[in-house]
Design a protein around this nucleic acid. Structure first.
Lengths: 143, 143
DNA sequence: TTCCTTGCAAAACTTTTGCATTAAA
DNA sequence: TTTAATGCAAAAGTTTTGCAAGGAA
């Protein structure tokens, strides 16, 4: 993991600060997970995170990774996605945005908000309001 | 299960025909699952289907229900939804449409296509084309 | 007979939990 | 010292699979 990243990229130091700001105690494991996930906008599964941390020499348990991901999501540091039924994906981009999804390759690509414009949306049912919009544009390979 | 439904509702008879038309052999279990699921537009989980079939006196195994749901989905009779990570939901409405989702209650409500209008959509990445659009409008309780 | 389907149990996978140990404040 | 976090293993929940038995063509 780079300690010197471009401005805006969250290095290990920036991560620690960011966790503290969110009221999350910056333990060694959490900082490593945050540094991995928050270094750039990306989509990772829990298993991918465990594999990357371990191949980088980190000592971290499966339970801690899952607990940490849920904790981060609860604090708005990451966002959990349900695009395929198989497993959860964790998106380090928490700004509003949408996704392309290629089921064949598993690729998940961010779509910025301005790329989509709704000229009509249904009113939410009585007693409810819109909490967010999940838009997944499913792709297929052009033959 | 009603044998005499309103026109358009798929009774046990209509189901049998519909399975045959799709190239799916209409066995007793498949017809019962189809009759349950296709009787009206609805969203059911595999466990809900098993429970309803058994409480109605049907003898059906878990493996057969899962196999059948996958088979139906592969033939376009139903559509599998990924709205929460916890489990798959099977939608008997295969016409294009969108959804409201209330995470608190688990409620899943259809949104007809004309209720949503896109005035802008991003071009799909090179080599791909749009296979479909999954839109989930997440709801929260108004305080 | 031949092929397909079913049921059961077990396996596979992802995620959560209990609890003793360890680290942080 | 006191509280919270970690790691391990086991459990829990969903879905798939292997295989013998049963049913349809």
């Amino acid at each position: 993991m780079e300690l010197t990243g471009p401005p805006g990229a969250a290095g290990t130091n920036g991560c620690e600060r960011r966790l503290t700001e969110c009221g999350v105690r910056p333990t060694a494991q959490r900082v490593r997970i945050a540094a991995l996930l928050l270094s750039a906008p990306q989509h990772l599964s829990a298993e991918q995170i465990i594999a990357q941390l371990r191949s980088a020499g980190a000592r971290v348990s499966k339970a801690t990774v899952y607990n940490t991901l849920n904790l981060f999501a609860a604090h708005g540091l990451i966002r959990q996605l349900s695009v395929d039924g198989a497993r959860a994906w964790f998106d380090s981009n928490v700004e509003p945005h949408y996704h392309f999804h290629d089921a064949e390759t598993g690729a998940l690509i961010d779509v910025p908000v301005p790329a989509v414009e709704f000229s009509r949306l249904p009113p939410p049912p009585p007693g409810t309001e819109v909490a967010g919009i999940d838009l997944v544009i499913r792709l297929r390979r052009k033959m």
